[in-house]
């Protein structure tokens, strides 16, 4: 399974369906700033429950964006999450797509506003 990462037909980066979900995006963004993070640290920083993070991590692992490693700290089992190269690439493309959407929407909004103002002025005259 993989997301819609990568440039679309127009060549512009497209939103990634896998990491578009807010929790998954938060997890991927968190992992992009570190080499590896323990399950509990990600859960606390993303402010989600164990089950929500578990589901998000499984989905990201299935997409090949996150590597999950089981280990032990003494006798306690620990789960470590790390972003893969594919995950990093997908995040960068998703962010580029978001950036593009924000800019396009802002300029479209500005154009509509200017058009409406000019229309209003023409009616007034």
């Amino acid at each position: 399974m993989s997301g819609d990462a990568g440039p679309g037909a127009s060549g512009a980066p497209q939103l990634d369906a896998v990491i578009h979900h807010p929790t998954r995006l938060a997890v991927v963004a968190f992992l992009s700033a570190c080499d590896e993070a323990e399950f509990a640290a990600v859960r606390d920083c993303c402010q989600v429950s164990d089950s929500v993070l578990s589901k998000a991590a499984s989905a990201l692992e299935a997409a090949g964006y996150v590597a999950i490693r089981k280990g032990y700290a003494g006798k306690r089992p620990r789960t470590w999450l790390g972003l893969t190269d594919a995950g990093e690439l997908a995040l960068n493309q998703h962010l580029a797509a978001l950036q593009g959407i924000a800019e396009t929407a802002r300029s479209a909004g500005a154009r509509t506003r200017v058009g409406a103002e000019e229309g209003g002025r023409a009616k007034g005259e």
């Binding site: 807010p22 962010l95 929407a105 479209a108 509509t112």
Partner: peptide, 20 residues
């Protein structure tokens, strides 16, 4: 407002970037 839909989309995308 005129261009409000685009503004909302821009705000949502910006909010996503800020969350990241």
């Amino acid at each position: 407002a005129p261009g409000g839909g685009s503004e909302a989309i821009a705000l949502e995308a910006t909010s996503g970037l800020r969350d990241v």
